[in-house]
Structure formats: C-alpha cells, structure tokens
Amino acid sequence: MLTSKQKKHLRSISHDVQPIFQVGKAGVNENMTKQIGEALEKREIIKVSILQNNFDDKNEVARQITEATDAHIVQVIGNTIILYKESVENKQIELP
C-alpha cells in the first residue's frame, strides 16, 4: 500500500505522462490487463484513459486493472487512472 507522501511524489512524476491505454465499451479484458502489466514492468507508472462510451464506474475499472496486474492506484482523476507498480528489472522510480 502506498503512503500519501509516496502518492504525492508519484502524482508529480505522472504529470507529464500521456495515457497509453484506453478502456472502451468492451471494458477490461484479459489481453488488456496483460499488456498493462507489461507496460508497468517497463515504465513503472502509466496512465489509462476511460473513454466516454464505457459506462462502468471508473473506480471499478481501476480496481479490476489493479487486481489483474497487482499494481497500485495512485489517483483516479476525471476519466484517467494513474497506476504504479515497482519494476523488477527496470527500477527507475525511488519512492520517498
């Protein structure tokens, strides 16, 4: 679990990160979570955008992704989810 200080640090890092995944009307599926997991291993922090044609609750979408990828939710703001997972091989971010 991330502390509030760590979340604040990760939010400041994620400011310049662009969303690389989009959740559409099909919702979250196994292939998407696999790709998100691989991206988290490479980058450690990513943004996922929820499209307007997805009628699922954004917090539920975030929960589904984090359960499937074992990541942490940094923030859900608007239709964007910020996710963090410490990389095993490509560690770049030092948490306070």
Rank of each mutant, 00 (worst) to 15 (best):
M1R: 13
M1N: 13
M1G: 14
L2I: 15
L2K: 15
L2H: 15
L2G: 15
S4L: 09
Q6H: 09
Q6F: 02
H9L: 12
L10P: 06
S12V: 02
S14I: 05
H15P: 01
H15W: 13
Q18S: 12
P19A: 00
I20N: 10
F21K: 10
V23S: 00
K25H: 04
K25T: 03
A26L: 14
E30L: 07
M32Q: 08
T33S: 15
T33P: 11
T33G: 12
T33Y: 09
K34Y: 10
Q35D: 02
I36C: 05
I36Q: 00
I36R: 02
G37P: 04
E38L: 13
A39C: 14
E41H: 09
K42W: 06
K42P: 06
K42R: 15
K42T: 12
R43M: 12
R43W: 09
R43G: 10
E44M: 08
V48L: 03
S49A: 06
S49Q: 04
I50S: 09
L51S: 04
L51F: 00
Q52L: 15
N53Q: 04
N54L: 03
N54C: 14
N54W: 03
F55M: 08
D56N: 12
D56M: 12
K58A: 07
K58L: 05
N59T: 01
N59F: 02
N59A: 00
E60A: 11
V61A: 00
V61E: 00
R63Y: 04
Q64P: 05
I65M: 01
T66R: 11
A68K: 15
A68L: 12
T69Q: 13
D70V: 00
D70Q: 10
V74G: 05
V74Q: 04
V74T: 07
Q75F: 05
V76N: 00
I77N: 02
G78E: 04
G78C: 01
G78D: 05
N79L: 07
N79P: 09
I81S: 13
I81C: 14
I82Q: 01
I82M: 10
I82E: 02
L83H: 05
L83V: 02
L83I: 03
K85Y: 03
K85F: 09
S87P: 09
E89R: 03
N90F: 13
K91T: 07
I93P: 11
I93N: 14
E94M: 12
E94P: 01
E94F: 11
L95G: 11
P96C: 12
